[in-house]
Every structure is written in C-alpha cells, then in structure tokens.
Amino acid sequence: MSTIYIMWLRQVKRYLRSRSRIIGALGQPILYLLALGYGLGQVFQRAGQGNYIEFLAPGIIGMSVLFTSMFNGVEMIWDRQFGFLKETMVAPVSRFNIMFGRVLGGATVATMQGLIVFVLSFAAGFRLHLTHPLVYTALAVIFMFLIALFFTALGTGIASMLTDFQGFQLIMSFVVMPTYFLSGAIFPLVGLPTVMKYITRIDPLTYGVDGLRGSLIASNTFALGFDIAVLAILSLIMLSIGSYLFSKIEI
C-alpha cells in the first residue's frame, strides 16, 4: 500500500513541479482547438452538424489525456535507466505495486492535464448547456481518468519491452497518432464508411471521447454505461499485461 502511494505521490509531485512541461504540453491542444475549431467550424455548421468547437473540445481533451498518458508511460524507459525507477527495481517490494503506483500517478497527472484543457476550451468558445454542470463535469473527469489509466498502462507495457528510445518514433507513428485520428475525436462517428466504422469501434479512445461528449454536450453514440464498461475492462486487461511485462524487466 505504502509503495503504491509513494510511487503515485512521486509522479504527482514531479508534475506539479515541472511547470514548463505543463505549459509546453498545452501548445498542441490549443493549436488543434483553434486551427480545427475555427478552420473547419464553417464547413461543419454548413453540413448541419452544429457548433464544431463544442463538438471538438471533448475530442481535444481526450487527445491531451492520450498524449500525456502515453508520454508518461514511455518516459519509463528513461526512468528505469537513469531515474528513480531503477532504484525501485532492487527494492524489496512487489513489482506490481511499483508499476501500479506509477501508472496511477501517471493517470492522475494526465487527468489533471485534461482538466486544464477543459478549462482552456472555454476561452475558445466552448460552453456547457447542461442542467447539472458539476455532475456532468465529474462524470467527464471519470472518463478522463479511465482513458488515462488505459493508455498509461499501455505505454508502460510497451516501455517495458524497449531498451532505448529507438522505438519511440515508431510508437508515435503507429500507435498514438492512429489512436487519436481514428477515435472520432475530430469527426462524428455516424455515417462513416463501413471500414472506418469498424476501425473506430476497435479504437479504445473512441469510447473515451464518446463518454466525454456524452458527459459534456449530451451527444453520445453509445450508452455511457457501455463506454465506462469498455474502458474499465480494457484498463484491467492492460494493467494485467503491463504488470506482467514490467515484472519481467531486466536492466
């Protein structure tokens, strides 16, 4: 228990202390919000789909949670060679607790990053039109955390198998970017060509973004309970695989 807590605390402290990184990581979501939001807003509206910024904001929140989570997971390659994680690998505590604490901490950090983007999206013109804004915001935070949990565990699992950063670019190109672009973060899930429809359905982020959209603008394709169930089950599976791979790490 204390191991999980200390690993969690460490991730959170690191995050809160690296202000430049928090701000740096906001550049991309802001750019997407403005460029896509204002650039494509007209087209979107003319196609009868409504306000694009409101549609887009949950997708961009999902994106920044995805990026922060994956980065945090993959950063482990560094951490276990030159960081504090290496020290924990010889500590007389279970590897599962170390991994779980680190993933929980990483997921907490990614959720905070998602919350910052959420707040910023108001500056870009996003509005909540719900009757119980606090309840739905809380629901959105749950979705952010589930997205974060899954992808931090995934990043950690991948990082457990890599010995240096050579594979990093491959992960960005073949895992992170497709996950983002094929999740419905920037386009609606309805009326897609059949192939695209199936591809979006196997992308875990789809359910996260759908849940966020359901919470924030009451526009979801699936039932929110279904979204939560899919994400929770996938996170559990990913945590199991990740902790297995983590326990096998040799340095």
Binding site: S2, T3, I6, R10, K13, R14, R17, S18, Q81, F82, G83, F84, K86, E87, T88, V90, A91, P92, V93
Partner: peptide, 29 residues
C-alpha cells in the same frame, strides 16, 4: 534485496524531488 544497498553506475535519483524526499521515499520503499 533486503540485504543490500546499491549505487548504480548511472544516476538513480529523482531530479524533481529534494534530497530529503529522495531519502524519505527510499525509507518508505
């Protein structure tokens, strides 16, 4: 693992923590 302490060839401190915190976290582990 309970029997030894180690200083690795490569650094293994947390740069974003203080000296005391690094010691304290080790004590918890």
């Amino acid at each position: 693992r309970q029997s030894f302490g180690i200083v690795f060839q490569d650094p293994s401190l947390d740069d974003e923590l203080t000296a005391y915190e690094n010691m304290y976290f080790h004590a918890v582990l």
